[in-house]
Structure formats: structure tokens, C-alpha cells
Amino acid sequence: MVALKMNESEPTIFIVDDDEAVRDSLMLLFQSVGMNARAFESGEAFLDQFSMDTPGCLVLDIRMPGMSGLELQNKLNAMHCILPIIFITGHGDIPMAVKAVQSGAIDFIQKPFRDQDLLDRINDAIRLDITHRQELTQTQQIKDKLATLTKREYEIIMLVVDGCANKVIASDLNLSQRTVELHRSHAMQKMGAKSLAHIIRMIVNIN
């Protein structure tokens, strides 16, 4: 399998299936609708080559020699990989399907399926992944900014978010009101918060 060089930020459909005919037909299907796709013959090959930073989704065969689809899913979960997984199976095995969805798979499709059904689910999965990644990035940005606050600023901003007035914070922390105001305004600047509502939204977001 030749690893194609691709734009890492472009959503990519990763196919993992030991059956070459299935890989080829899926590649053809995805290319025919202009989607980026890469195929792998095993879970091991996929783990070797994929990048966690590429958005998209994983179309995964459940039964494979070597690492099974469920094993690959567990490995990815352990790596905190958020790539949505759509399982494809030849045989309707209910316990496997239940296990797969319990472990976070977003869908489990039985062969034969209609091409359009698969494409619809893949589109949903990719949209979900992109939204999820954006949320994670925003959360990380807020956390990074929070990390730049001094201990005192952090303490005061958390009390502000809890709804405490400057006067109350001052008396709680044994500071002058003026000092509280200064710390509060520094913290708001560092956080890039335009208003009280804005900072509250940021803190609520990361919890």
C-alpha cells in the first residue's frame, strides 16, 4: 500500500479492512464523490501510519486476522484518539455491535449496504469530528490562557465566576477592594475576556 501524501487538515476517510476487494471498492466509492481516503490492510498498518491530527473518520472491518476491529478501537481509545468509528461487518453479531457502540463507535453497518447510506453516515461522522476538534481546540486555548494567570488572579477570577462581588472577594481574601479590582482587570485582559458573561462562558466551557 503506497502511503499517499495528503493535506493533513483535509478530512480523510481511513479504511481498515483485510479484504483487498473491499478496500478497492470503498476507495473507488469515496474517490468518486471527491473525498480523501486512505486504505490499510490491518489495524497494525493503520496505527503505524495515521496521524491523530487528521480529522475524518475510520471505516473499520470488525473481523480481521491479527488485530480485530474491536481491538483497534480499544487501542485508539487508550490513545485518547477521537476519530469517529463506523464499523462494517459481514455477519450480524449483536454482542459485537453492542460492545462496539458501548466503546464509542458511532455506527455499525451490516453488509450489504447501500453506498448512499454509508456516505451519509460518513458525512455525519466527519462533521461530528470537525465540531469535536474545534471544541477541543477552544477548550485548550482557554486552559492555556488560564495557565498564564498568577495564583492570586486565578483565585479571584474563579470567585468572580462564582458570582462574588469585588467587595465580598476583598473581605474573603483580606485584600483591599482596589487590589481585587486590579487583579481582576489583569486576569480579564490575559483571558481576552470582554465581559463578565464572556469569562463565565469560557470557564463553563472547559468544565
Binding site: 461487518t89 450480524g92 453479531d93 455491535a97 453492542v98 457502540v101 458501548q102 455506527d107 451490516q110
Partner: peptide
């Protein structure tokens, strides 16, 4: 059947 099992799990069932 597999389809209702998958649907139930996606709807948030704990087990099927």
C-alpha cells in the same frame, strides 16, 4: 436483530 441493537445503543441503551 442487529439493526435494532445498533439503534438502541445509539439511542443510549446500556445494553441489548
Amino acid at each position: 436483530d442487529l439493526l435494532s441493537a445498533v439503534e438502541a445503543m445509539k439511542f443510549g441503551a446500556l445494553n441489548y
